[in-house]
Design a protein around this nucleic acid. Structure first.
Lengths: 193, 193
DNA sequence: TTATTCATTGAATTTTTGTTTAACAAAATT
DNA sequence: AATTTTGTTAAACAAAAATTCAATGAATAA
């Protein structure tokens, strides 16, 4: 049984290897800037072998976007009563994840780039656009405004400010892994009344 | 005299035209993703003519980075007494500029990308890295902490949180020009004690 | 007006990148 | 052990992009 899977496992490993180095490269150089030769060299294989595992550069990018979609939405599952509490918890949680696992920070960056990069495969762009925390959080902000815990003002603009701050910080940490990470509550103070 | 300059002016106009469309394209597609054919088509000229005005794509990118360096550092000139006031004013000022002049928002994005994009010309990357508001503002934050106006905590992390929030919001506005713009004071609340 | 310079294009050329393939080595199956 | 399947490479090939160039016509200078 273990013999039978040896190749399967290795194939899976190789694929993951490609995905891993590609994530870094796509972040560093963008979709077009990343050459197959970059990927294959980083993964320690010939350019030809790349095509044994993926049909194209597009496919790798799309697969990363799918992985990112799951990972980036996961933190939203937290069940809350106090709206401000929710935002404090979520930002703390995101920052903690980023501190512990730099790959998550990288994913934030990748997904943001995937939304933007018009040279990237359209499918991946669509996938990345599904991460829309700003719209998702508007009702929560409105609830907090009613109870007076969250400051007054356009709920969409507030949600935007909060999530863009998170995004900006995550991106920075992804690029500068050694810099000190802010506290989650600081970002939540954007919303605090 | 005016006759003599006619061609000079036109040449300057063409160059600016190229710079302008390139800014948009570089933001949308990154350095490598932007083809000479994209630039020349957007500027309404043949690909060959591009080389009449610039030696290479690199040169255009570098010139944009130089322009961005000036434009992005300008807002820091504000003279302040109250540290928190400084941050409120500066964020309000930046947001106002972005609302009025989308090109500034685009520049924020471009400069951030230029720092990151390892497929971009090294010269431009170095230029972009000169924009370092985070380090520049640490003393101001320390001053505010002494007078109790700014919250306690690692000054560098606070500065990072503030500037990354600004960056994140500016980037979002650059991509979604019709979204509502947050208030400057909200972002300054990251720092408020 | 004539000669000269410059802007412009489209095609030719060169370079880079992406992809396929033929050949071979290693592993698995019989 | 023999055969088949899979992993791997380097070279061949194809496509795309960057860059150069010869030709043309318009603006400028003489």
């Amino acid at each position: 049984m273990s013999e039978i899977n040896k190749r399967e496992e290795q194939k899976e490993e190789r694929r993951n290897q490609i995905l891993e180095v590609s994530l870094d490269l796509f972040i560093e150089k963008g979709f077009s800037g990343t050459k197959i030769s970059d990927i294959s060299a980083s993964a320690g294989m010939s350019a030809g072998l790349f095509f044994h595992y993926f049909e194209s550069k597009e496919q790798v990018y799309e697969e990363l976007a799918n992985i990112g979609l799951e990972g980036t939405q996961a933190p939203m599952m937290y069940d809350f009563e106090n709206p401000l509490d929710f935002f404090e918890t979520i930002s703390e949680q995101i920052f903690m994840t980023i501190r512990q696992n730099r790959r998550v920070a990288k994913m934030f960056l990748f997904m943001a780039n995937a939304q933007l990069d018009k040279s990237a495969p359209p499918k991946a762009r669509e996938t990345a656009l599904k991460v829309n925390n700003i719209q998702l959080c508007i009702p929560i902000i409105e609830k907090g405004q009613k109870t007076g815990i969250i400051k007054q003002g356009d709920p969409e603009a507030l949600s935007l400010a909060f999530w863009c701050a998170i995004q900006g910080i995550a991106e920075y940490i992804a690029v500068n892994p050694d810099s000190s990470c802010p506290q989650g509550s600081w970002v939540a103070d954007i919303l605090r009344a």
